[in-house]
Amino acid sequence: MFVFLRSPIVVMILILCVSTNFFKNLANIYKYNIDQRINNVYGYCSNSSIGYLNYLKKKYKINHSQKIINYKQTGPVKWAMTNTKNSFKNTDRLILLNYPGEVINFELRENNKKEYKLRNYKFFKYLIQNDFNIEITNYSDIDKNKAFELEIFIKDRYKNNKIIKKISFPANESINKKKIINFQIINYLSYDKIYLKFNNMIIDENVLIKISSINKYLIKDYKIINNEFNCYLLEYK
């Protein structure tokens, strides 16, 4: 009955089917139409949110360029709304995808030189007001007679540190307490990575460091035209 399986070509083709998930792909094409598959791949109001953009395009018959801001790092999304025939850009409206709220929190990533990099700073630098707020709790000084210092710096092409701000606090001040530091990064927006270094501070699992900045786009400043989950079509008031 399975004589055809003796053919090496058929066997190889079956292997190819398995290695490329042919049957799953076939079922996917059969079960979902192309719009549903796009939603599955790019998300409706998650990840790239192309599903939401397609929905807006159809519902509001948007056929011009539109400012779109996606708060998830997913790659460009403008392509889904591009109309090459209409160069008009509607500056009265704004689409926000995956809106995180009014405050954007940053994580810190440590390297082997005890330096901390602001994760995703490159992505968020134009989406925040660049007023940073650092909240440090449960920390203690290494040497109680020395000052606690926070260095904020960038690195040039050859990985040399260039300090852009140094904040220091007198010795013996606020041990084991909460410290709130505010700083601004304005003239260094061309740099994609911002590093922090905490001098004379014990950093262990008890220490909690929270870094945040205020979102540049606040929903309260706009009129909401459409909202699905955390995706918005807004109009300037």
Binding site: F22, K24, N25, I29, R37, I38, Y42
Partner: peptide
Amino acid sequence: TSIASKLE
């Protein structure tokens, strides 16, 4: 089918 299914 792989290309038609994944689309990204």
